[in-house]
Nucleic acid binder design. Structure first.
Lengths: 114, 114
DNA sequence: ACGATACTTAAGTGAATGCTTCAGCAACAG
DNA sequence: CTGTTGCTGAAGCATTCACTTAAGTATCGT
């Protein structure tokens, strides 16, 4: 891709179970990199790389105080992905409704319910 | 990963702009593989591979009649991802509210607004 | 000052991804 | 029957991904 759109980065970031686990942890409150890495079966270096992906997608922001970097979720970034899904789903359901209505109108003599 | 969970596959599938374009097209109504491939700048073979990813994630189902495979979106698969995002976002917002309340209660003598 | 803590960066590796091309194959049109 | 359409499969290839290890760099506690 020539240019990465926000949604690309968001869905891409959330497609990895480790990163989703990090978001789930951060959804319960801010945490340091060490706290994030604690339960995960990998090096802190790997966790840092996942963190950069999440930050790159705008899903997480972090701030370093002293030697501790504290991370938290940016809820608005979740909203964008949420809205895309909601819009598509509603569009599908709407077109299914239209189909059902069409079938009902063009063949009123067949039984309406299964 | 040892085991791919439904959400892994869904977010993974949606992380690619081509596949999201396919879902957007299918959200407006069913389409054949050719119709899906039409506007996309790649071979139909590549589109087929994307379609398999979408089907593997349960986001799309298709049925072949004659030599034409007709595809449509499975709206319930979108709901799962939608709910995950909604749950996390609400959790974050809830913990931010708690923080705000805590700060307000523990330091009532400081000015409440910035 | 010294060591421990908490990150940070760089380089490397094996596997997965996103294509391509080419070669089928079944269904339909004439 | 023959050619075209619409899809399908396999192989190959460049890039990206998710790690690893190893070597930093700032803090912080004593």
């Amino acid at each position: 891709m020539l240019q990465q759109q926000p949604l690309d980065l968001a869905f891409q970031a959330l497609s990895d179970p480790t990163r989703r686990a990090m978001v789930e942890r951060l959804a319960r409150g801010p945490a340091s990199v060490s706290e994030l890495a604690g339960p995960l079966p990998m090096s802190m270096s790997a966790v840092m790389q996942h963190l950069k992906v999440l930050e790159g997608a705008g899903l997480v922001v972090s701030e370093k105080v002293g030697r501790v970097r504290t991370c938290r979720v940016e809820p608005e970034a979740l909203t964008a992905a949420e809205r895309w899904l909601n819009d598509r789903r509603r569009s599908v359901e709407r077109s299914l409704d239209r189909l059902g209505l069409f079938l009902e109108q063009t063949k009123p003599e067949t039984e309406p319910r299964e």
